[in-house]
Deep mutational scan, measured.
Amino acid sequence: MASQGTKRSYEQMETDGERQNATEIRASVGKMIDGIGRFYIQMCTELKLSDYEGRLIQNSLTIERMVLSAFDERRNKYLEEHPSAGKDPKKTGGPIYKRVDRKWMRELVLYDKEEIRRIWRQANNGDDATAGLTHMMIWHSNLNDTTYQRTRALVRTGMDPRMCSLMQGSTLPRRSGAAGAAVKGVGTMVMELIRMIKRGINDRNFWRGENGRKTRSAYERMCNILKGKFQTAAQRAMMDQVRESRNPGNAEIEDLIFLARSALILRGSVAHKSCLPACVYGPAVASGYDFEKEGYSLVGIDPFKLLQNSQVYSLIRPNENPAHKSQLVWMACNSAAFEDLRVLSFIRGTKVSPRGKLSTRGVQIASNENMDAMESSTLELRSRYWAIRTRSGGNTNQQRASAGQISVQPAFSVQRNLPFDKPTIMAAFTGNTEGRTSDMRAEIIRMMEGAKPEEMSFQGRGVFELSDERAANPIVPSFDMSNEGSYFFGDNAEEYDN
C-alpha cells in the first residue's frame, strides 16, 4: 500500500510504541512475548500442572481467558453494579484439565481477579502490559475465525453469508486497541457500523446529549479505520460520505453494504499476525530463551520457528480426527482463516481442507461434555516452508469459486491468482447506482469489472525454506488448481455463540 510509510507498523501498534527502528520493534515485541511466557509459567505453578498438562491447549485457553477477564475493567465495573446470582464479580476462573488415573478430569478453578492481575503485572515488570493482553485477544479471535462461520451475524446486519472472507476479527472485544483495529476485516468494521446506525434509528437519543457526542466521535473513528483499509480513492470518498452524514440511517447502511461487497474484489488491507497460545510461549521462556534479547516478529519467520520446536497437546472428542484438529489450530496460529487453501497447503506441506470436510468441533470443551471418553493427542503445528504475512489485500483475480465463501483475504505475501467468483459478486451490483453516491458507485463498479483474471497478485513473492531466515531465496510455489480455494466452501461450520 502506498501510504505504508505514514502508518505505524503493526509491531508498533502491538507494543504501543512511538516510531521505533526494526531492532527496537523486535525487542519490544519480544518483551511482550516474554511477559506472556513468564505469566503462563507462574500460572502453571499456581495450578500445580504437570509439564504435559501445561502444554494442553484447553488449559492455555482457560488461563488466557482468566487474565483477560481480570483486566476487563468495563465488564468488571458492570458486574459490580449489576450483581447477578451466583456470579462473584471479583473472581474469575474456568475449567482446568488434569490427568488422573490414566483419565482426563475437569476441575473448575476460581481465583481472585486481583490475584491474577498481581501475577500478570509481576510477570511483566510491574506494568499492565496491555500489548500482551491484546495479543491474547487476537489469538482467540484468530481461533474463532478458523472455527466458526459468522453466517447468522452477517444475515442479521443485512449482509450476504458468502462475504465471510471479510469477517476477520469479528469476535475481537471493543477494547483491543490499535492492534485489534489493524486485524479487523472490512466486513467486521461494516458490521460494527451498521449495528451502531441501527441503534440510532431505533433509539432517538442515541446521537443526542453528552453521551451522543461520545457516540458520534466513536462512529467517526470507526469510519476512519474502515476508510484506511480501502485502497481505492472511490471507496475512500464513499467512506467520507458515510462519516460526514448528519443523521446516519438506511442510506448509510446501503452504502456500507455496497462497500463491503466491493471489497470482495477491490480488497481492503487487513493486517495478519501470528499470535500463538500462551502454552507455546511459556515452555520456550522456561527453556531459557530470551525473546527480548533475541527479538521477535509476528509477521516473519519467528512464529514458524517457534511452532517448529513446540509440543502442544489437545483434548480430542471420541469421533474427532486429531489431524483435522491440528489443521484448525495451525490455521489459527498463522492467522489464515480466509487465505486461499492452495497457498496454505503449499506452505504447510500437507493438504489443507475446507472447514466442512474437517471432523472436528471447536477447541474448547463445553462444561456439560462427558470427560470419560476424552483422549488427548499432539497437535501437528509444523510447516514445510515459511512466508511473510501481508497486510495488503493483493490485486484481484477471477477463479472458480464456491457456493460458500466467494473470495479470499490473503494472509501471506505469496504470488498467486486470487480466487473470487466474479459473476456471483457482480450480480449483486445491478441497477442500484442512484442517489448521492452514484458517481462513486459507478466508478467502483467500473474498477471491479476491469479486474483481470490473468493478473498475478504479489508478483514474484515466494515462500522460503525454514533454514532461509533472511528470506534470501524465494520459492514461487505451484498450486494444484483442481483443489478448492475457499475454506468455508459450501460450508456447515458451527455458528459462533458468545
Rank of each mutant, 00 (worst) to 15 (best):
D72G: 10
R150S: 10
T430I: 01
F489Y: 15
Y40M: 06
N205E: 02
P173N: 08
S345D: 13
R156W: 05
K87A: 01
A179S: 12
I25R: 13
I116C: 14
S84M: 15
K90F: 00
I57G: 12
G94K: 10
Q149P: 03
S467T: 13
T350G: 15
R236F: 06
P474I: 01
S297L: 07
A286V: 10
G282C: 09
R400N: 04
I194P: 02
V67E: 12
S28Q: 14
I96N: 03
R174K: 09
F464I: 09
G268H: 11
E339N: 05
D128N: 15
D480P: 13
A237S: 14
V100S: 10
A284T: 05
F71R: 12
A442W: 00
H135G: 06
M167R: 04
V270Y: 05
A428Y: 09
E64S: 09
G212N: 09
N417G: 10
T390H: 05
A182D: 01
T171E: 07
N144K: 05
E465L: 00
S50V: 03
M105N: 11
Y40A: 12
S353A: 11
E294H: 13
T390G: 02
D240E: 15
S353W: 14
S287G: 10
T360C: 15
G362T: 06
G177H: 08
C44K: 15
N319I: 04
A337K: 05
A251K: 07
D72T: 08
S28L: 01
K98C: 09
L298K: 08
E24M: 11
K77M: 13
V363I: 15
S482I: 12
L298E: 01
F488Q: 02
D51R: 11
A336G: 15
E80H: 11
P161T: 04
K305R: 15
R175Y: 01
P173C: 05
N395W: 00
E339T: 01
V299W: 11
D128F: 14
R121E: 02
V155H: 02
N370I: 11
E434Q: 14
S69F: 05
N59T: 12
S482F: 03
P248Y: 02
R199T: 11
R355V: 10
D34C: 12
K214L: 06
Y52L: 03
W139G: 11
L133T: 02
C223R: 10
R236I: 03
Q149A: 03
R391E: 04
D491V: 09
Q20N: 02
M66V: 11
E369M: 09
E320V: 06
Q42Y: 08
F258I: 05
N334G: 08
L56M: 14
S478A: 08
G209L: 10
R174W: 10
T433C: 13
I36G: 05
R106V: 08
A387G: 15
N205S: 13
Q311L: 00
M331R: 01
N492A: 05
I445Y: 06
Y97W: 06
E14P: 00
L49E: 04
S377G: 07
R267P: 00
D34M: 13
Q327T: 04
R261A: 04
P161G: 14
T92M: 10
R150D: 06
F464W: 00
V363S: 03
N21D: 03
W386M: 06
G356W: 12
D491H: 11
L68T: 09
G288A: 13
F488T: 00
E252C: 07
G169M: 08
D128C: 07
R75C: 04
F39Q: 05
E220I: 11
W330M: 08
A123I: 06
Q122G: 03
T146D: 08
K229C: 06
Q122D: 00
D88C: 15
N21R: 13
A373N: 14
S60M: 14
I41D: 07
E14G: 01
T171H: 04
K293P: 07
H272D: 09
L259D: 09
N492S: 13
N21M: 15
P173R: 04
H272L: 05
R382L: 07
G158D: 03
A260S: 15
R342I: 08
V352T: 07
A237H: 14
D112R: 11
F338D: 03
N202C: 08
N309V: 08
M136G: 06
N432S: 10
L259S: 10
H324G: 08
S165I: 02
M163A: 12
K214F: 06
R174Q: 03
A442D: 00
S359R: 15
E14T: 06
E14A: 00
K31Q: 08
I36M: 14
N492K: 12
V190Q: 05
N370D: 13
T15L: 15
C164T: 07
E107G: 04
E369N: 04
A181C: 07
I365T: 11
R162K: 12
V183T: 14
T424Q: 12
V190E: 03
D145G: 12
P423Y: 04
D16I: 02
F304Q: 04
E380G: 12
Q42K: 13
R355T: 10
V109Q: 15
D255G: 06
M239T: 14
L56Y: 06
I388H: 05
S170N: 13
R19W: 03
G295P: 07
Q409I: 14
I365S: 04
S245L: 03
Q231I: 10
G5I: 00
L307A: 10
D128E: 10
M137D: 06
L256K: 01
L47M: 13
N142H: 11
S9D: 00
K198W: 04
E252I: 04
F258G: 07
L418N: 04
T147Y: 05
I119D: 07
A233W: 03
A218P: 09
R436N: 07
R65Q: 07
L143I: 14
A2M: 09
E434W: 06
K31N: 11
G158V: 03
M1A: 11
T378L: 12
R55N: 06
S217L: 14
R446D: 15
M163G: 02
T45K: 06
F39N: 12
E64H: 07
W330Q: 04
R156H: 11
I301V: 13
A153M: 06
R391G: 07
V352A: 11
V183Q: 04
R216Q: 03
P322A: 14
R55Y: 08
P161C: 06
S486D: 01
R389G: 02
K422L: 13
R199D: 02
R436M: 03
Q241G: 03
S176T: 10
I406H: 09
G177S: 06
A323E: 01
G126E: 10
E375V: 10
S482K: 06
A401C: 02
I116K: 04
E244L: 02
T147W: 06
E81D: 13
L108M: 12
V408E: 11
R204V: 04
R400E: 08
Q415S: 15
S377W: 02
I201D: 03
M239L: 12
G282S: 12
R38I: 11
G158A: 13
D101V: 11
G180V: 05
K103S: 10
A182T: 08
G249C: 12
L47T: 11
D101L: 13
T171S: 05
F346D: 02
V270G: 08
V352I: 13
L306K: 02
I197Y: 03
K357H: 13
A178C: 03
Q364L: 12
A251V: 14
R175T: 06
W330D: 14
K357L: 10
F488E: 01
G295W: 12
